[in-house]
């Protein structure tokens, strides 16, 4: 029973990692850029959720609040691409890594100025409510997180596999110039995908704040862990991101419980290094050998 209980908590945590990893994969899939500020965008989403939903702030209903947060962060993502990231359009991946790391620092500072540095939690309608299955206790929050994640992953998966826009996004990431020749508006596509990843980050952020406390510096390490999850799954694969997130989420509590202290925190990274050493492209590898 103990193991099952750990498993449920791990899966719920893993879903949040998975949600955040989805944001990484989205941007990577559509523009082959890696957004190192994704964790900080999630933190921003969490704070927006807190601002709209908590009684001490705007006191809106949960669903209205989460929608507003997602819309605002989506707009933020769009404007970010339109006015900052487009300046380095077409430059190597590395430039984007540096740029987003710097953006993350800036977002963290601004959030600290606006919301302060005290940990804040989200007040959800299902706070403290628990379903019991025999001896197993499932917090409603965890159930909501798991359902949301699975739903969002499947929607995005079909979006990329089936819709014109999704396929255009994949094309523009594989070869920008060829995508241009095929009549794909690559710049607009990039802006759309950044908006989309903003929406996903907001949802991840609200879920994060519903389960734990949020403060400005939370984004960095959480973002790195989620990125590790995305890499475990094979950067560029949506189901892979979810699987990687789940693996990270499950490994963490088990390593913390059964292995010597201190190992629990680094277990996700050790797992990632092992996966990368054995399969350099991750579990669902997207890398192929270049033909010369």
């Amino acid at each position: 029973m103990d193991i099952l209980q750990l498993l449920v908590g791990g899966i719920a945590n893993g879903c949040i990692y998975g949600l955040l990893a989805l944001g990484f994969v989205l941007i990577y899939k559509a523009s082959e850029a890696v957004n190192f500020a994704q964790g900080d965008m999630m933190m921003l989403g969490a704070f927006l959720g807190v601002t709209f939903i908590n009684t001490s702030y705007a006191d809106l209903p949960f669903l209205v609040g989460i929608t507003l947060a997602a819309l605002i962060l989506g707009l933020f993502g769009y404007l970010l691409d339109r006015f900052v990231l487009r300046a380095i359009f077409g430059q190597p991946q590395f430039a984007m890594v540096i740029l987003t790391i710097a953006l993350g620092f800036l977002i963290r500072f601004v959030a600290g100025v606006i919301w302060g540095h005290d940990p804040t939690s989200l007040e959800t309608p299902f706070i403290g409510r628990v379903w019991t299955l025999g001896e197993l206790m499932i917090p409603v929050v965890d159930a909501v997180i798991i359902i949301t994640t699975v739903a969002l992953t499947s929607i995005l998966y079909f979006f990329f596999a089936r819709t014109r826009l999704g396929v255009a996004m994949q094309a523009s990431s594989q070869n920008q110039m060829a995508a241009y020749y095929m009549g794909i508006p690559v710049k607009r596509i990039n802006a759309i995908v950044w908006a989309l990843s903003g929406v996903v980050a907001a949802i991840a952020g609200v879920m994060f704040a519903a389960k734990g406390a949020v403060e400005p510096s939370v984004g960095l390490l959480f973002g790195i862990k989620a990125f590790a999850a995305a890499v475990i799954g094979g950067l560029g694969s949506l189901p892979g991101a979810l699987l990687g997130g789940l693996l990270v989420g499950i490994v963490e509590p088990f390593a913390g419980r059964y292995l010597p202290s201190g190992v629990g925190q680094i277990a996700p990274y050790v797992l990632m290094l092992l996966v990368l050493i054995l399969r350099p492209g991750g579990l669902f590898a997207q890398i192929s050998q270049k033909k010369v």
């Binding site: 790195i224 990125f227 590790a228 950067l235 680094i266 990274y269 990632m272 290094l273 990368l276």
Partner: peptide, 28 residues
Amino acid sequence: RPILRMSGIYLAIATLALSIIIEDVAIM
């Protein structure tokens, strides 16, 4: 040897992970 089989972003995250692991190793 194992790490430099990766490149680009994979290498970046692998070395980042290394840095995080060393933090905890330094405590242990």
